[in-house]
Amino acid sequence: MPLFETIKHTYKHLWSDASTASFRKYPSPERPDILSIDILSKEIDPTTGVLKCTKLIICKGNTPSWLKSILGSGECLFYEETTVDPKNKIMTLKTKNLNFTNILGVDEVCTYEQHPDNEEWTLFTQEATVTSSIFGVARKMEAFCLDRFVANAGKGRKIMEDTIIKVQKEAEESLASFDKTFTSIKHEAEQSFEKAFSTAEDILPIIKLDDKQSQTTQNTQSNNNKKK
């Protein structure tokens, strides 16, 4: 009989910031057990505009002694499928274990969606299902995995908060840098315009003088022609 656990949390940040942070939260010193996360494939559905990524997650198997005798102390491999729907502002992450599947099944579904009560917030839902088929220790194993899941979820929230703030800070710095560049270009353009204008003011009387002279010459010539 599988065990279930659901956790809900509200991030008081925009969905775009939360979804960006989700891609960037690892590696993190808070979770040294996560050794690597690699994107295996990525594609965009041309009709819906939904991004789909698949990832390979490798974790250090830091299991208690009673579980080591069953699982060993090797690495744990997980397969994750991420879908991002930017129009409806929903990000879904489905994760399942790739090894020890004959002993233990771990399935996790996480969603980040725009909060129904406040569009400047993000509602995060995390659901885990743990199933073990080992006679005698199945319940103990499932309970251990769910306890670990809850503990890691707490760490995950802290990592997310830190990463969201980092993402926002980077965006602000990028905007400030753009403003600075824009102001600098604008200032240079204004200076060039002023320079061109003052040069024109210097040249204009000469041009006008030339015009007067050529006009006088033309008038003289036409008068001469009339006399003839």
Binding site: S16, S19, T20, F23, R24, D38, I39, L40, K42, E43, I44, P46, G49, L51, L56, V84, P86, V167, A171
Partner: peptide, 30 residues
Amino acid sequence: CFNKWYTTAFLKGNATMECVEEWEEYQVCI
């Protein structure tokens, strides 16, 4: 490259994949 594209292009409605060169190089490792 992917993170920059995700924030500045994809979330703003541009559904064209970028970072092709980086992706192909990285895929050999994967």
